[in-house]
Simulated scan of single mutants.
Amino acid sequence: MDTAPRPAAEIALPAGWGAALVRGARCRCPRCGEAPLFRQWLKPVDTCAHCRQDWSVQQADDFPAYIGIFVVGHLLAPVIIFMIATLGLSAWVTLAVMLPVAVVMLIAMLQPTKGAVIAFLWWHGVGAFVQERPIATPESTGDV
């Protein structure tokens, strides 16, 4: 079986880094958008089943968790302030309610965030990734 990545001409590469991030956040291969990016909850596949991109070289490390903590903290901070200042709930009641909510939110967004980080690294050619861009055709550029 051939393990070399399929040429970019055979793959529908994303048009921009935003499209690549959306593919990654949907837990699909950022390069082709066809195959799953993860084989387990946070463990990426070694090689894409469709385009044969090597994902074993990704180095997302702890960055997805940092992004998740940042986003969840900023989303819940106004809720916590509202619960204490407006509703007059004690700090203990607020903690008892918001801690499980924060944990569930963080767990729910961790895999999509990791997929988006991997897509970002791939799109920009960070680390061992080779930077690829869609091939411009006369139809896509308007030069017919």
Score class of each variant (00 low, 15 high):
Asp2Leu: 15
Thr3Asn: 14
Pro5Phe: 03
Pro7Phe: 03
Ala8Thr: 07
Ala9Val: 14
Ala9Leu: 11
Glu10Pro: 09
Pro14Met: 02
Pro14Asp: 00
Pro14Cys: 03
Trp17Ala: 12
Ala20Asn: 01
Arg23Thr: 00
Gly24Leu: 01
Cys29Val: 02
Pro30Lys: 00
Cys32Ser: 00
Cys32Leu: 01
Gly33His: 00
Glu34Thr: 12
Glu34Gly: 06
Glu34Tyr: 10
Glu34Lys: 09
Glu34Asp: 10
Ala35Gln: 01
Pro36His: 03
Pro36Trp: 02
Leu37Val: 02
Phe38Pro: 00
Arg39Trp: 08
Gln40Asp: 11
Leu42Phe: 08
Leu42Tyr: 04
Leu42Trp: 05
Leu42Cys: 07
Val45Asn: 07
Asp46Glu: 13
His50Phe: 15
Cys51Trp: 00
Cys51Asp: 01
Arg52Gly: 06
Arg52Thr: 10
Arg52Phe: 08
Gln53Trp: 07
Gln58Pro: 12
Gln59Ala: 15
Gln59His: 14
Asp61Arg: 10
Asp62His: 13
Phe63Asp: 09
Pro64Leu: 08
Ala65Asn: 11
Ile67Pro: 03
Ile69Val: 13
Ile69Pro: 06
Ile69Leu: 15
Phe70Pro: 09
Phe70Ser: 15
Val71Asn: 05
Val72His: 06
Val72Phe: 07
His74Phe: 07
Leu76Gly: 03
Ala77Thr: 13
Pro78Glu: 08
Pro78Gly: 06
Phe82Trp: 14
Phe82Ile: 12
Ala85Arg: 11
Thr86Gly: 13
Thr86Leu: 12
Leu89Gly: 09
Ser90Thr: 12
Trp92Ser: 11
Trp92Gln: 15
Val93Gln: 15
Ala96Ile: 09
Val97Leu: 10
Leu99Pro: 02
Pro100Leu: 07
Val101Ser: 02
Val101Gln: 01
Ala102Pro: 01
Ala102Leu: 05
Met105Cys: 10
Met109Phe: 07
Met109Asp: 02
Pro112Gln: 04
Pro112Ile: 13
Lys114Phe: 05
Gly115Ala: 05
Gly115Asp: 02
Ala116Asn: 04
Ala116Tyr: 06
Val117Trp: 04
Val117His: 05
Ile118Leu: 07
Ile118Phe: 11
Ile118Pro: 02
Ala119Lys: 01
Ala119Thr: 04
Ala119Gly: 04
Ala119Ile: 05
Leu121Thr: 11
Leu121Gly: 12
Leu121Ser: 15
His124Trp: 15
Val126Ser: 14
Gly127Val: 07
Phe129Met: 09
Val130Asn: 12
Gln131Lys: 13
Glu132Val: 08
Glu132Ser: 08
Glu132Lys: 08
Arg133Tyr: 11
Arg133Leu: 13
Arg133Gln: 13
Pro134His: 02
Pro134Gly: 05
Pro134Leu: 02
Pro134Met: 04
Ile135Val: 12
Thr137Cys: 08
Thr137Glu: 09
Thr137Trp: 10
Pro138Ser: 14
Thr141Glu: 11
Thr141Asn: 11
Asp143Gly: 15
Asp143Asn: 13
